[in-house]
Nucleic acid binder design. Structure first.
Length: 528
DNA sequence: CTGGGGAGGGGGCCC
DNA sequence: TGGGCCCCCTCCCCA
C-alpha cells in the first residue's frame, strides 16, 4: 500500500513535470507565432504606410499635373476658348453628377418675338456660385485664407489658387506636401473619382473617358423657366456662394474651396475627372475642357486690385515671369484635326507659357461647376470651327488693342475689384466677371431657338434674332440702306461722309475703319 | 462695303 | 444712398 502511494506520488510528479513542460512548450510556440505575427503586422503596416505615401505622392503629382495643365491653359489666355464647348451646353450636356438648366429668357422690353424664347442653359440646376473675391489686406490680414461656399449639389472647387508671390506652398492637400517638386513634364494622370478616395491610375483610362464622354451627351435642349430655377433675368446665377480670396498685399495667398471635401483629391462627387495632361488626347482633352474650364471659370472671380506688374506667377513651383505680350501658341493643326470634324477640339498646349503675370491660379480640378458645355456632337457652329479658332487667336490681339486703348484692363480702377481668375481682369460687378469668364470657358448660355446659335450675352442673342426676323431698325438718312446693327449704320455713314480717320503711318493711305487699316498694313507693309 | 458675332462699358432700375 | 442686376450701346473683328 505504501509502495502504491509512493508510485502515485511519483506519477503525479512526473505528470506535473510533463504538464509544465507542455505548457512551456505551448507558451514558447505561442510566443514564437506571436512574434512572427507581430512581425508580419509590422511589415504590413510599413507596407501600408508606404502605399499611403505613394498614394499621396500620386495625388500630389496628379494635382500638380492638373495645375500645370491648368496654368498652361491659363497661360494662353485671354484668347483661350475651348472651342465648341458651348454646344455641350446647348444639349444640356452636363456633368455626370448633374443635368442642365435651360430656361426661357424672361420677357422684357426687347424686340424678341414671343415665339422665340431665349433658352438659357445653365448646365446644372444647382445655383452654386463659388466666387473668389480678393479684398484688401487690411480687411483680412496677411495671409488670411477665407473660404466660403454654399450649394453642395455641384460644387466648384478651386483646388488651389495662389496669388502674389510665386512658390507659395500649395495647401490643397490634407497632409503636408512632402513630395518633391514634380517635374513639369506632362504626365498621364487619370483620376476616377466617385468614391471618397480617388482612384489613381497611371494611364489614362480611355474607357472611363469614353463613358464619361458619352454620358455627357445625355442632355437635351428642353427649356425651363429661369425664375423657377431661381435665376436672374439674364439667367445669371446671382452668385450666392462665394469664396473670397482676400487680397491686398503681395504676400502669397491661397484659396481653396473644398466645401464638401476634406482634401483636394478626395472629392467624392466627381464621378469622372479624367484627363490626360500630357497627351491631351481627344477624349481626355475634351473632358478637360468640359469640366475644368467651365467648372472653375464661371463662378470664380476675384475681387480686389489687380496684381502688381512684375510679379511672378507661381506655376507648379516654377515662377514664370512674363515679358511682353506673347501670342498664344495654340496648335491649330491639332485643334482642327480629326477632332474638329467631330466637333471635338483639343488643344496642344505647348511648352511656352504665356500668361498674365501674377496670376497664380492653380488648377481647379475637383468637383467644380457642373457645367460641361463642350460637346462632341455637331452643332451649327461646327462649320465655324476654324472661325472660332481664329477668334480665339485673335482675341489676344483684340485684348491687346483694347489695352492700348485703355479699355480693357483698367486694372487700377478701384471700382473694378472683381477679378477674373483666368486673366486677372477687373470688373465692376460679379455679373460682369461672370459674363467675361465665358470668354475663357466658352460657355454660351443664350441659345437661339431657330438656328441653335449660342451666345455669351443676352444682348448678343437679341441682336442675332434680327437675322431671323429681318428687323433692321437702323436706317440711313442718306440712302435707303437699313441695318440691323447701329454700328453698321455708323460705319455705313462714313460712305456718305467720306470720313477716313485711320491713316496708315507707312503710306499715308486713309481708311474708314481700323480693321481696314490693319489689313492694309498686313498686306502692304507686313505689319500688324 | 455689308453683315454677323464677340465682348466690354454705361447707365437705368430696383432693393 | 449705394450696390447689384441687366439692358443697351458701342467698338471691334472677321467673312
Amino acid at each position: 500500500m505504501a509502495n502504491c502511494m509512493v508510485f502515485h506520488t511519483q506519477i503525479a510528479s512526473i505528470m506535473e513535470v510533463l504538464a509544465n513542460a507542455a505548457v512551456a512548450e505551448i507558451c514558447k510556440l505561442v510566443d514564437d507565432d506571436y512574434a512572427v505575427f507581430r512581425l508580419e503586422i509590422t511589415q504590413s503596416q510599413k507596407e501600408n504606410r508606404a502605399l499611403r505615401r505613394k498614394l499621396l505622392e500620386l495625388k500630389v503629382a496628379r494635382e500638380r499635373a492638373e495645375r500645370t495643365m491648368r496654368e498652361r491653359v491659363l497661360a494662353t489666355r485671354p484668347s483661350i476658348k475651348i472651342l465648341d464647348r458651348y454646344r455641350g451646353i446647348a444639349r444640356g450636356e452636363g456633368h455626370l453628377t448633374g443635368g442642365h438648366r435651360n430656361f426661357v429668357k424672361p420677357s422684357g422690353p426687347n424686340t424678341l418675338r414671343d415665339d422665340q424664347p431665349i433658352t438659357v442653359d445653365e448646365g446644372n440646376g444647382a445655383s452654386t456660385q463659388h466666387i473668389i473675391v480678393i479684398e484688401s489686406a487690411e480687411a483680412a490680414g496677411p495671409g488670411v485664407k477665407q473660404e466660403r461656399s454654399e450649394g453642395e449639389e455641384d460644387t466648384l472647387h478651386i483646388r488651389d489658387i495662389q496669388t502674389g508671390l510665386a512658390g507659395a506652398p500649395p495647401v490643397a492637400t490634407d497632409e503636408p506636401d512632402t513630395t518633391p517638386a514634380q517635374p513639369k513634364t506632362r504626365r498621364s494622370v487619370t483620376e476616377v473619382s466617385g468614391t471618397l478616395n480617388a482612384v489613381l491610375k497611371s494611364e489614362t483610362d480611355t474607357e472611363t473617358l469614353t463613358v464619361t464622354h458619352r454620358l455627357l451627351h445625355t442632355g437635351s435642349d428642353q427649356m425651363s423657366d429661369p425664375e423657377r430655377l431661381g435665376l436672374g433675368r439674364l439667367g445669371c446665377t446671382p452668385a450666392p456662394a462665394s469664396e473670397y480670396l482676400l487680397y491686398g498685399n503681395p504676400s502669397p495667398r491661397t484659396v481653396h474651396s473644398h466645401p464638401d471635401s476634406g482634401g483636394a483629391s478626395e472629392t467624392g462627387n466627381d464621378p469622372s475627372c479624367s484627363y490626360t495632361s500630357e497627351t491631351l488626347g481627344l477624349e481626355a482633352q475634351t473632358d478637360l475642357s468640359r469640366r475644368d474650364w467651365n467648372r472653375c471659370s464661371r463662378s470664380v472671380y476675384s475681387e480686389g486690385c489687380l496684381y502688381k506688374a512684375g510679379e511672378g506667377m507661381a506655376v507648379d513651383e516654377v515662377t514664370v515671369k512674363v515679358e511682353g505680350d506673347i501670342p498664344p501658341t495654340w496648335n491649330a493643326d491639332s485643334l482642327l484635326g480629326d477632332g474638329h470634324s467631330q466637333g471635338r477640339y483639343f488643344l496642344d498646349y505647348r511648352e511656352s507659357l504665356e500668361t498674365n503675370p501674377n496670376v497664380a491660379t492653380h488648377y481647379p480640378s475637383h468637383t467644380l461647376r457642373d457645367r460641361d458645355p463642350l460637346s462632341t456632337s455637331m452643332g451649327p457652329s461646327d462649320s465655324h470651327g476654324s472661325v472660332l479658332f481664329d477668334q480665339v487667336l485673335n482675341s489676344n490681339d483684340r485684348t491687346r488693342a483694347q489695352d492700348q486703348r485703355g479699355e480693357a484692363t483698367s486694372s487700377n480702377s478701384k471700382d473694378k475689384r472683381f477679378l477674373c481668375m483666368f486673366c486677372n481682369k477687373g470688373f465692376s460687378c460679379p455679373q460682369k466677371v461672370e459674363i467675361h469668364q465665358r470668354v475663357h470657358t466658352g460657355e454660351k448660355p443664350y441659345s437661339c431657338t431657330q438656328c441653335h446659335m449660342r451666345f455669351t450675352q443676352a444682348g448678343n442673342l437679341k441682336r442675332h434674332q434680327r437675322v431671323h426676323t429681318g428687323e433692321k431698325p437702323y436706317g440711313c438718312t442718306q440712302c435707303h440702306m437699313r441695318f440691323a446693327q447701329a454700328g453698321h449704320l455708323k460705319m455705313h455713314l462714313k460712305v456718305h461722309t467720306g470720313e477716313r480717320p485711320f491713316t496708315c503711318t507707312h503710306c499715308g493711305k486713309r481708311f474708314s475703319e481700323r480693321s481696314y487699316l490693319r489689313i492694309h498694313q498686313q498686306k502692304k507693309h507686313s505689319t500688324l
